[in-house]
Amino acid sequence: MTRNLRCRAIAVGAAVALALTACGSGGESPDTTANADGLEKTTIKVGALPIPDSVSLYIANAKGYFKEEGLTVEPVTITGGAAAIPQVENGSLDISMTNYVSTFSAVEAGKKIKLVADMYQAAENNFNIMVPKDSPINAVADLKGKTILVNNLRNVATLAVTTQLKVAGLTENDVKFAEKPFPEMGNAIASGQADAGWITEPFITATQSQLGFRKLADTMTGETENLPIAGWMATEEWAQKHPKTLAAFQRAISKAQALASSDRKEVEAMVPTYTKITPEVASVITLGTYPSELNADRLQKVADLMLEYKYLEKPIDVKSIIVAPPAAG
């Protein structure tokens, strides 16, 4: 009440300094110094996209896995893995979701980023090339000269599609890639702006049921089978300064990943709480898998594919950019 009045008084008077203190929105959590467990930082901000991939963060929060580690985690909605890199670099996020292709490109560009936990791995039929029902395109080879929508150029989407083009005897130069956010792809293709789209869930299900699209190809087969998609990242500096906080985060996330991969019901129950995906949709969409271990050999496949298709100029040794959790739990 007084706060309200004061703000109104300021609106008339325009006393700026006072306004900063009186109307300031959302006090920021201070860096608490080491607690009983010796954590360097007990409250951390973790960036994640509001999609099923990042479910472990919310499971760990809801089930109290972070609390058990003495950690308070504040989830922050990000707008993309690549967009989150500046946010971890400047410290507005401690840890963030990232996709591996973006991460490896960033590492080659000289960014000091470390992968700290695995998150999401492709499974069958959760990254498909979709076309309208009456499209003349009936095989990947028919895509020659056509326009394919992807969420980001030179990223997982184009890489995955290119591997399928190769199987059909085409290269990325035989098609035209255009960028469009997932929510707009269905309508853009329906209106004839493009011929096909690289689409993931919940949009595969949505374009099928609402626009009658059909699947042309699963892009996660052959070279891309079980392709690691997304993980958690921190800057090298942050990981060095907060080893105990990081280990606590890794233990809690790994536990949540294990639960997510063993029980789909847990994922279905959690997804509608932090995304706008309804429970009905959550129960029918195709999900990837949730690996609980950060495995350099598995992630190496992504870096090697990127090298093969010239997304990287030089090979990256994934071992050098992961910070694996300490062996003793």
Partner: peptide, 24 residues
């Protein structure tokens, strides 16, 4: 919309977009 965040009208729209909720 560009930076995301913990909460806000734009943050809500980002989440609604990712969840295919044009109505929201």
């Amino acid at each position: 919309l560009l930076a995301g965040g913990v909460n806000g009208i734009g943050v809500f729209a980002v989440a609604a977009g990712s969840g295919n909720r044009m109505d929201l």
